[in-house]
Amino acid sequence: MPHDHSDHAHSHLPSDPELRVRALESLLVDKGLVDPATLNALIDTYENKIGPRNGAQVVARAWVDPAFHARLMEDATAAIAELGFMGRQGEHMVAVQNTPTQHNLVVCTLCSCYPWPILGIPPTWYKSDAYRSRAIREPRAVLAEFGVELTDGQSVRVWDSTAEVRYLVVPMRPEGTQDLSESDLAALISRNAMIGTDLVKAPSA
């Protein structure tokens, strides 16, 4: 496999990304390598079926079911599969628990590795140069930008997803939510809280 071409193939397609993607799709469809209906099905999957609501169900279950929480911390891939979530970019899951003494934050400095089966496609900020470069060196400044306030005595642990292991942050359950149902709890849990750039708050009265 050659690496550094003097002539990158992609520069032979139109520079406008919309025209470029259309040209590439048309070539691949003509060759029978891609079925347009498959592309529609893939888009529908990640637009409507697989997203952060999956992860929120996992976290809410862990909050209400100590045995599930224990299984999640022991073997997250298997525990998450109990809820039916598995597949591409979630082959090797590890759950990391936020505590009063440790806040966890996930990044992929080398590309944009992200646990698709439970969080869907990563948001723009997660894929940005600024997040990739800064989260690992100045996580506290990054957290402050997201409005996350750490408590005194809370250290920060940053997980850089350099392999095929994908990390799920299990946020702390907020005070005053003991009467909420599992599904009401899930509704409180934001995508960012499961990456570490948000905290979960109790619903305001």
Partner: peptide, 29 residues
């Protein structure tokens, strides 16, 4: 990782899965 100079994190409240049709098409391709 660790590089200086990138500035603030953009689009922190981003909630759209895809921002344009071509992005969705690029991922699917």
């Amino acid at each position: 990782g660790g590089r200086f100079g990138d500035g603030p994190i953009p689009e922190k409240d981003d909630s759209e899965v895809f921002h344009t049709d071509w992005e969705a098409r690029a991922l699917a391709l």
